[in-house]
Design a protein around this nucleic acid. Structure first.
Length: 404
RNA sequence: GCUGGGGUGGUCGAGUGGUUAAUGGCACCGGGCUGUAAACCCGGCGGGCUUCGGCUCUACGAAGGUUCGAAUCCUUCCCCCAGCACCA
């Protein structure tokens, strides 16, 4: 790739690139010297579950790797112990060393689905921060003014409304900024919500005499499955990257058409021109949205698994929803007590959240036993003649019963 | 600290002594239509037990009290909001 092409590739999907003109220079210099750029991104160790929203950032890291650069995956274990200022839960219990290590392991498992191990360095900011003396700390505190720190939206609002702001919260972005001094990277990546911290890091670097502060790039926060709010675990509108191929594919298929384009943009490596073509062909009805979505689902699953697993997920989906057949694989349970009532079993196996709900499902006609609708809420398993049977609740929940 | 307003189910928000598991919207779940899209239509939406007709327990910030009966009245406490006071 030419430098210009590299530039376009790296900027795709990014929101900010500050200072904008510097990326070219860095790329050119790296190419000339044969010295890869060092790219850093920080992660919070308190929430180690990565969903595809986070992968927008991770994919950006990957883009740099693909162009030969080195990526530093920084785990903010020290900052995590202080607590994130944006978190309303200031009194969050600090994590133990063990938990942090465990979370770090969880991270690794997940990120290496996307990143190249050989070009990834994993670091913890406690490496340098836990050695900080009170002296060092006061010095760090002197690198920014209160007015600057209060620029941050969250603080500004709280200050104006006279809500409490703890001093340590103000320190957060400085500490985070110091990471950049310690790691001395060329570029730092982060979500748009991190822009303030990223900019502050540049200032901290300058204050510590770094001649050329890091370039910063931000990536958008991905909308969740509802298409409106940002993807997050607590809102339940997410796709976890450790979910099964079938689940990921299914969730992708259920998003709205508008959201599909957004996901294409941020979750695939299609070039802007390829996407333009796609849009045009969709607009002229040459491609139908359903198939485009299936293609998207395949691409996303393939990233976290393999091509064959992605194809399998797609085929499985077609079997279930196009042909309305049963899936090939489904959870199975061995039933010891054949006199158990079906509603209880459904609740116990999680096909319904409670017995009451299971009853509702039957009343509403969404429960099938071997394809036959069950209408009797008092149905007991004793009435099943065969050795095994398949219960279906709704369109997508299946359970194979093995009768002992 | 003072004065006033308020805390209701996932959320918003009605209800001010008695058909009350509590109107309604949103979210959510099931069904229909489809492309597991959107829109739309129908149904549901605390838990447990049930011989499916029901029975029962828990819920309206917390704890007590009045009453045959309370989300609704009284007392105390906790929390939130607005204003006032205090502020080295």
């Amino acid at each position: 790739m030419t430098i210009a092409e590299q530039l376009a590739y790296l900027k795709k999907g990014a929101v900010d690139c500050i200072p904008d003109e510097e990326l070219v220079r860095k790329l050119e210099r790296a190419a000339k010297a044969g010295q890869p750029l060092r790219i850093k991104a920080g992660f919070d160790p308190t929430a180690p579950d990565i969903h595809i929203g986070h992968t927008v950032l991770i994919r950006k890291m990957r883009h740099f790797q693909q162009l030969g650069h080195q990526v530093i995956f920084l785990i903010g274990d020290f900052t995590g112990m202080i607590g994130d200022p944006s978190g309303r839960s200031i009194t969050r219990p600090p994590l133990t060393r063990e938990q942090i290590n465990q979370n770090a392991e969880t991270y690794k498992e997940q990120i290496f689905k996307l990143l190249d191990r050989d070009k990834t360095e994993i670091r913890f900011n406690s490496e340098w921060m836990s050695r900080f003396s009170a002296d060092d700390f006061i010095r760090l505190a002197g690198k920014a003014t209160v007015a600057q720190l209060l620029e941050r939206d969250d603080f500004k609002k709280r200050f104006e409304s006279q809500s409490p702001i703890s001093v340590h919260e103000l320190m957060y972005s400085l500490v985070q900024g110091y990471d950049s001094v310690a790691l001395n990277c060329d570029v730092e990546l982060g979500g748009t919500d991190q822009k303030f911290n990223l900019l502050m890091a540049r200032q901290v670097q300058r204050e510590y005499g770094v001649k050329e502060p890091q370039l910063i790039m931000t990536t958008p926060l991905l909308e969740g499955l509802d298409g409106v709010q940002k993807m997050s675990k607590s809102l339940g509108n997410y796709i976890g990257i450790t979910e099964s191929p079938r689940e990921i594919f299914g969730k992708i298929m259920s998003i709205s058409d508008a959201l599909m384009w957004r996901y294409y943009e941020l979750l695939t490596d299609l070039s802007p021109s390829e996407m333009e073509q796609m849009r045009a062909r969709a607009a002229s009805n040459e491609l139908n949205p359903r198939d485009l979505k299936a293609d998207l689902g395949w691409r996303v699953v393939r990233d976290f698994y393999s091509d064959s697993e992605a194809v399998a997920a797609r085929d499985e989906f077609d079997r279930m929803f196009r042909e309305r057949r049963m899936p090939e694989e489904m959870p199975a349970v061995t039933v010891q007590d054949k006199s158990i009532r079906l509603v209880k079993l459904l609740a116990a196996e999680g096909l319904a959240s409670s017995i009451s709900e299971a009853q509702r499902f039957i009343t509403q006609g969404s429960v099938k036993l071997d394809g036959e609708k069950v209408t009797d809420v008092t149905f007991e398993l004793t009435r099943i003649a065969a050795e095994q049977a398949v219960v279906q609740v709704g369109k997508r929940k299946f359970l194979r019963l093995l009768l002992a």
